[in-house]
Design a binder for these strands. Structure first.
Lengths: 129, 129
DNA sequence: TCACTGGTGTTATGATATAACATATGTTAG
DNA sequence: CTAACATATGTTATATCATAACACCAGTGA
């Protein structure tokens, strides 16, 4: 049922880079760090990111225009995904939560709103900071 | 020029413009529409927006890099504010919800995370579309 | 008066993202 | 096989979003 598509070279480079850090990265930072691997233009990174995000392997943090590798074993779950972004150390915690999902589903229903994408992002200070 | 409350001229221009539409606007769209009122540079708009957002009179929609006037009578409430953004007609519905706020507060507590800002945005199709 | 604060105006620049077009490669139907 | 199609890629240029830096001015309070 869950088909894992094979990644192309550029997608692999981007996902590998994101997976090896615990912090989100901007598309241009990714590009800079992948120049040694032959990437030269923003579009090469953005196209790879588009695919990875569509597959759920990478998430875009809207509030900081950056990307993180999915930390979640199964991102196909129907629970809402909440990102807690530490503004001091930059680290991001990704948590799914059924209560949030239920409350949002109820709100959407009340408005006859059909949600296709959702982003829930908290910014502040993590426990270590 | 009639100033609203304690707002400056530029802040008043920006808030007026945002209040007269039911759709979010980008900073540059605001600038274009306010050129007739004497605004000439992006910073004039961004500075006004910064103040208005800090006061809670305007919200920034992170996922679409746009701004909306607050639709909420009392935005000082402690409930989480959820934005439902229709990708067809562009209209935005702003709703506060205690259940969402509680669930997010519980999650943050569990991680010892201290949230300073939060953004909750659903994108999809509204009831009319 | 003088320092301080906050708003304004202006030019320049930085940061994020996509358009448009050319080329290549793999898959599939005829 | 090969024509048609879909998809990935490379490249240049451009669009879109946001801030840095500096100068000026007006109000406030010691």
């Amino acid at each position: 049922m869950t088909h894992i598509a094979d990644l192309t070279r550029n997608q692999t480079l981007v996902l590998d880079k994101l997976s090896r850090t615990d912090q989100p990265m901007s598309a241009y930072t990714l590009l800079d760090e992948l120049r040694g691997d032959g990437l030269k233009a923003p579009l090469q990174v953005y196209r790879a990111l588009d695919k990875l995000v569509a597959q759920g392997r990478v998430h875009r943090l809207e509030s900081i225009s950056a990307f993180v590798a999915c930390q979640h074993p199964d991102c196909q779950s129907h629970a809402a995904t909440v990102f807690m972004i530490c503004e001091k150390c930059g680290r991001v915690s990704e948590q799914a939560d059924a209560d949030v999902a239920k409350a949002l589903a109820r709100m959407a229903r009340a408005e006859s709103f059909v949600a296709e994408k959702m982003s829930i992002e908290l910014r502040g200070a993590c426990g270590k900071c």
